[in-house]
Design a protein around this nucleic acid. Structure first.
Lengths: 146, 146
DNA sequence: CATTAATGTAATATGTTTTATTACAAATAA
DNA sequence: TTATTTGTAATAAAACATATTACATTAATG
């Protein structure tokens, strides 16, 4: 699947939950082909959303798909090779601390430098989250399920 | 200002940026009364938004206000006594990793436990962010400005 | 080779959240 | 008394997220 992404505005707030749910199901059934309809039934969301997220997971090289009868999706790599920071990055569209205001007043001595200072702070906090997620893997997450 | 909050649905994505901007301006002018209009002019957002955020900052006990001519807002406590985790908590409405899906399928062995597992993970990441923000203060943030 | 079932994706609709705006009562300085 | 400011409700507009419909394409299988 090839995509040229010009600009994606939407930050889907349930995307991390959705994607880790999808990956958990796939990791629990290695070698099997799960359909978007079946996966959607577990999450109880629309199957088109599931297919879209699976498109991103294919872009990451984690998943492949098969069309037609008996088709579906399956994991290409073991869960221990997918860490949660990488999963988060596939769905993350805004900084952890949110968005900056677009036009702080350049004539105000504070306003003119605000976004530069926030840039540094926001980047640092994002890194903190990545660090915390990096040492966790899909495998360790999946192991928690009975 | 007393409020009974039944349920607040809105998570304003620029709220952290807005609130830290407001607090920075107040901290840079100790003892002065800044109007919501003047503050809004620095951020270049609507003054009503500024007054709403200042309402929350008053609830925290950090700020007080004065109505009427020559009125405005001023800081009640020094910037070193306000840490960024506390600021984040005043505006935070969702977990860092986002929202959970509402109704994972209880008949699915994965679906039925998903939100419990996500709950733990999401709480842990939130704590990580609080920890990173806790050792920074408004004072240290403000000092960065020329 | 017709049928069935699945992905991939566009287009559209609906719902939710965020931000801005309008309006005005209440307060207060001068 | 006038001018100015907060506090807040109500509404509007914009942005974002999710769901739905539709259908071309692909592939297994009887």
């Amino acid at each position: 699947m090839k995509k040229i992404i010009i600009f994606v505005a939407n930050m889907n707030n349930t995307r991390f939950a959705t994607v880790i749910h999808i990956l958990t199901l796939l990791a629990k059934s290695p070698g099997e082909w799960l359909s978007s309809d079946w996966i959607a039934g577990s999450i109880q969301i629309n199957p088109v959303i599931v297919r879209k997220e699976l498109g991103e997971l294919q872009d990451q090289g984690w998943v492949t798909s098969r069309k037609g009868k008996e088709g579906g999706y399956t994991l290409l790599i073991p869960g221990k090779d997918i860490n949660l920071a990488a999963i988060y990055k596939t769905v993350k569209k805004t900084d952890v601390l949110g968005k900056k205001n677009l036009n702080p007043n350049p004539k105000c001595p504070i306003g003119k430098d605000m976004n530069k200072e926030l840039e540094d702070l926001f980047a640092e906090i994002d890194e903190t989250v990545f660090d915390a997620l990096r040492h966790r893997t899909l495998e360790s997450f999946v192991k928690q399920f009975g």
